[in-house]
Simulated assay, not measured.
Amino acid sequence: MNAQPVETRELPRTSLKASPITLGTSYLGRGTVPGGPGEQAAVEFAEAMLSGPYALVDTSNEYAQGRSEAVLGIAASAGIGPGRAIVTKTDRDVATGVFDEDRVLWSFEESCTRLGVERIPLLHLHDPYSVSFEEATGPRGAVAGMLRLKDQGLVDAIGIAAGRVGLVAQYVGTGLFDALLTHNRYTIVDQSALPLIEEATSRGMAVFNAAPFGGNLLAKGAASGGSYNYTASPPALLEWVARAEDVAARHGVTLPAVALHYSLRSPMIHSTVVGVSKIERIAELERLRTTGIPDELWADLEALGPAPSPVTD
């Protein structure tokens, strides 16, 4: 167990401190059932996250159909390492798509029950795609639910967590949110979230950048044919990534290290969220984090020209 998380910094407008990396848990507990044979292994994995090198573990109401939060709750009941915390997200009703004030309040209650807590330090509004921005920000909308929880002192801070830059910009523009979590849109392949990150920074918000590997493409390399942003990578993108791998190799580092440090090096990003699916991945991430990247590499990478990103929103 690490006595304290590494390199913590204050998260603006929250009660939290974050390490450069936050662990994502969308895979945690997937396929397990309460008391089933896979649950204990998942709990042990969660315990490793909550006592490992990083300050924050990120989950969501709907991850693994609620099992991510449930497993984290079991692990946390035995104690969390000093300086660590769990942050989560509210989600739509997956059966109906309803995402209004009542659903936000119920999602919060579900999360608290699973996590075994009464309060949450940072709660994100997650992927509000099933409702329009006008519905979400109107009377009895999802945003009203988020503000109600904050006003009641049940959450310390609220965030907006989603991918679609244009939509997320509308939520950031309200000035109501304390944190931003963007994903797959600030990587060596796609920088479409940069104006959004700049806007959030100008408003003094905490900024999380998730999925620096774009899914698995930048973690596994071009030869893997890996996906980017949950979709198959087109041949032109695979060719560009192969050239980026060559740049990394010329400088004596790996593509995954370059991809991670692209996010870590930004002064506007407080923490980079990386999903992990096995315990060994935590140590691997720490090796990548502590890898030195030559300054000259970034100019050589830029010289490749823009990558043909498949992101279209």
Rank of each mutant, 00 (worst) to 15 (best):
M1Y: 04
V6C: 05
E10M: 00
A18V: 15
P20R: 00
P20V: 07
I21Q: 01
T22W: 02
L23T: 03
L23C: 02
S26M: 15
R30Y: 12
R30K: 13
T32V: 10
P34H: 12
Q40V: 08
V43L: 14
F45L: 15
E47L: 02
A48C: 08
Y54M: 09
A55N: 03
S60K: 02
E62Y: 13
Y63A: 07
G66C: 12
G66H: 09
G66D: 13
R67Q: 15
E69R: 05
E69V: 08
E69N: 12
V71S: 03
L72H: 08
A75R: 07
A75I: 07
A76C: 06
G83T: 06
V87N: 02
T88H: 01
T88C: 07
K89Q: 06
D91L: 02
G97D: 13
G97K: 01
F99L: 00
F99I: 11
E101L: 03
R103M: 12
E109T: 11
L115G: 04
Y129M: 14
V131F: 04
S132C: 05
F133S: 08
F133K: 14
F133D: 02
E134I: 06
A136G: 09
T137Y: 02
L149I: 12
L149V: 06
L154Y: 05
A157E: 11
A157Q: 04
L167T: 06
Q170L: 14
Y171W: 01
T174Y: 06
L176W: 13
D178A: 04
L181P: 01
T182H: 13
R185D: 00
I188S: 01
Q191F: 00
Q191P: 05
A193W: 09
A193K: 11
E198P: 00
T201F: 05
R203S: 06
R203G: 03
G204F: 11
A211I: 04
F213A: 01
N216D: 12
L217E: 15
L217K: 03
A222Q: 05
A223G: 08
G225P: 04
G225L: 11
P234A: 03
A236T: 13
L238M: 13
L238C: 11
E239I: 02
R243Q: 13
V247I: 12
A248I: 12
R250P: 04
A259F: 13
L260Y: 09
S266G: 05
P267S: 00
I269R: 14
I269M: 00
V273L: 15
V273N: 05
A283G: 12
L285A: 11
E286P: 02
R287I: 07
R289F: 00
T290S: 14
T290I: 01
P294M: 05
L297M: 14
G305K: 08
G305F: 09
P310S: 08
T312V: 09
